[in-house]
Amino acid sequence: MNTIEIQHLQRHFTVGDETVRALDDVSFSIAPGEFVSIMGTSGSGKSTLLNILGCLDTPTSGSYRLDGEDVQTMDDNQLASIRNRKIGFVFQSYNLLPRTTALENVELPLFYNRHVSPRERTERAKEALRLVGLESRMQHTSAQLSGGQQQRVAIARALVNDPVLILADEATGNLDTRTSYEIMALFQDLHAQGKTIAFVTHEPDIAAFTTRIIRLRDGHIVEDVPNTPISATQTLQAL
């Protein structure tokens, strides 16, 4: 079973009396363990696709199946629940809560999962922070962390609910080159551990670290090719 199966997906917006086809008949699937970058310029429809993949938005028509569940028919509460259980978001601007410790930020998704006890919540958050190499910074608030560290906290937050899909939205966009590569090295690590990652970016050198590149233009897929990734760790050493 594919992690993501999208068929004839359409997403139209009505602006005034004009219909904008942000996504027009898009079909693709992502198998478990893939590290896919979704590329495109602004206006290509990649943000719209990201919102649909992240279950923040639903398609106008077509079908979206995430981990075997049909998303296009879900109501708001079901969407919230599937985001909580199956998706880990990593944003460009980290979106950590201010004046809140790294640990508490990472615990946050588990607050909205009734089946996780407070004790388990803390244990899993600590484990996620260890995974991103921040075990020594758990009690630091966002203001006490560098940009790269904040993004690591955000990645830990995306991992804590053990999602079927990690969705990164220009996750290196606010970082310098070296830190970007460090973050990509972390994503490659996670990929090596079997995580499925969809990485939205407009930077070709970031897409080069992924195993497959989907290119969007004007709401259509114009290219969908496998990619032999270069190693972020080696690139870092070469810097």
Binding site: G54, L56, D76, N77, A80, S81, R83, N84, R85, F89, F91, N95, L97, L108, P109, F111, Y112, N113, R157, N161
Partner: peptide
Amino acid sequence: TREIGLRKAIGARRSN
């Protein structure tokens, strides 16, 4: 607003 957006993105329901 951003905090609310984030909370909803990571699974907070309307009622939460």
